[in-house]
C-alpha cells in the first residue's frame, strides 16, 4: 500500500459510508417488518421518523460517492508518475487487477444510488408512502454492492506497489490490444461515429418522446443505458483522438488532464447526469400503476426524461464541438 492523502481520504470515505449503512440496516429491517401506514401507534411514528434519517443518509452516501468517484480518477491520474510505464490514470488503475473493477463498481453504485433516490423521491410525494417496503428492500440490496465496491477499492489500494511496471493507455487502448477495449479503439471511425450519434439520438429522442407523449418510459432507460456504453466506446475510439489531435492516442482519462484543459469534464458531466436521469425514468415506471402514484410518477418521469433529453443533446453537442474544433482529420472527404 502507498500512503497517500487521497488514498486515506477515499478509504475513510468508503469506510464511513459502509459503516453508516451497516448501522442503519437494522432500521431498514424494522421498517420492512413493522411498517403500517394506517396505524397511529407510537412505533409507526418512530418508524416514520427514521425514514427521514435513512433518506438523508442515502443522499449523503450518494453525494460522497460522486465526489469519491472524481477523487478516485483524479488520484489515479496524479499517481501515474509513481509507476514505471504509467502516463495517466489508466496506468495506475492497471497496477493490479482490482483497479478497473473498483472503478466500475463505484460507477455502478453511483447509478444505483441515484435510482434509489429517484424512487425515494416519488415515494415521499405520495400521501401513503406506497413504496416504503420496496424501497428499503432495495436499500438492503444496495448494501452488499457498496461493500463490494469498498472491498475492491481497498484491495486495489493495498496492492499498489511502486516497483510494479504497468501498461498504460498506449497499450491498453491501442488498436492491437486484445479484448473489448482494443476492439473499441480499433473500430473503424465512420461506423463507430454513426453508431455513436444514432445511440445519442435514440436516447435524447426517447426522452423527448416521453416528455411529449408520456409513453415509452422503459425505452428512455434502455436507450440511456445503451447510450452510456456506446458513448464511452465512442470517446475511446474517436472523440479522444480529436481532443488529443493524435491519431493513435485512445484514452478516456487523459481528457481530464489539465494539458487538455479539463475538456473531459464537459463530456462526462452531461453523460453521467443524462444516464442517471434516463435510468431513473425506467426505475419508477413499474410503480406508475400504484393508485397514489398514478399522477406523481408520470409527472416526475417527465421531468427526468426532459433532463435526460437535454443532457444527451448537450453531450452530443459538446462531442461534436470538440470534433469540429480539432485539427485532426480522421475521415477524409
Amino acid at each position: 500500500m502507498i500512503f497517500q492523502p487521497a488514498i486515506i481520504a477515499l478509504l475513510l470515505a468508503s469506510l464511513v459510508c459502509v459503516g453508516l449503512l451497516v448501522v442503519s440496516a437494522p432500521f431498514a429491517f424494522d421498517i420492512i417488518r413493522h411498517w403500517n401506514i394506517r396505524s397511529g401507534s407510537e412505533r409507526q411514528l418512530v418508524l416514520e421518523r427514521r425514514t427521514y434519517l435513512l433518506s438523508t443518509l442515502l443522499t449523503f452516501v450518494f453525494a460522497t460517492q460522486l465526489v469519491a468517484l472524481l477523487l478516485f480518477v483524479f488520484n489515479a491520474d496524479k499517481m501515474s508518475s509513481m509507476f514505471v510505464g504509467a502516463m495517466c490514470a489508466v496506468g495506475t488503475l492497471n497496477v493490479n487487477v482490482f483497479g478497473f473493477p473498483a472503478l466500475i463498481a463505484q460507477i455502478v453504485v453511483f447509478f444505483l444510488a441515484a435510482n434509489w433516490l429517484v424512487i425515494n423521491h416519488v415515494d415521499t410525494r405520495a400521501h401513503d408512502y406506497p413504496l416504503v417496503r420496496i424501497k428499503y428492500i432495495l436499500l438492503l440490496a444496495l448494501l452488499p454492492l457498496l461493500l463490494v465496491a469498498a472491498v475492491l477499492q481497498l484491495r486495489y489500494f493495498l496492492g499498489l506497489k511502486a516497483d510494479v511496471i504497468t501498461s498504460c493507455c498506449g497499450s491498453l487502448f491501442s488498436e492491437e490490444a486484445p479484448g473489448v477495449t482494443g476492439d473499441a479503439a480499433a473500430s473503424p471511425p465512420l461506423p463507430t461515429m454513426i453508431a455513436f450519434y444514432v445511440a445519442l439520438a435514440l436516447a435524447a429522442g426517447a426522452g423527448l418522446f416521453y416528455r411529449l407523449r408520456k409513453r415509452g418510459a422503459y425505452f428512455v432507460a434502455l436507450f440511456s443505458g445503451a447510450a452510456f456504453v456506446v458513448a464511452m466506446a465512442g470517446i475511446l475510439s474517436f472523440v479522444s483522438l480529436y481532443i488529443y489531435e493524435h491519431p493513435h492516442h485512445h484514452c478516456p482519462f487523459c481528457v481530464l488532464k489539465p494539458e487538455y484543459h479539463y475538456q473531459g469534464y464537459w463530456l462526462y458531466l452531461p453523460l453521467f447526469i443524462g444516464t442517471a436521469a434516463g435510468l431513473g425514468v425506467g426505475a419508477i415506471q413499474p410503480f406508475s400503476r400504484v393508485p397514489s402514484l398514478t399522477v406523481i410518477v408520470p409527472a416526475f418521469a417527465r421531468k427526468l426524461a426532459t433532463l435526460a433529453a437535454v443532457m444527451w443533446s448537450l453531450f452530443a453537442a459538446v462531442a461534436s464541438f470538440m470534433i469540429l474544433n480539432s485539427r485532426l482529420v480522421l475521415l477524409e472527404g
Partner: peptide, 24 residues
Amino acid sequence: GFQVATLFFFTVFPYAAATLVPIW
C-alpha cells in the same frame, strides 16, 4: 485543485458524517 479536493474530503466529510445523526 486535486489537493483542495482531498483536503475538503479530509475535513468537511468527517464533519458532515459526524453531524448527520444529531441533525436528524
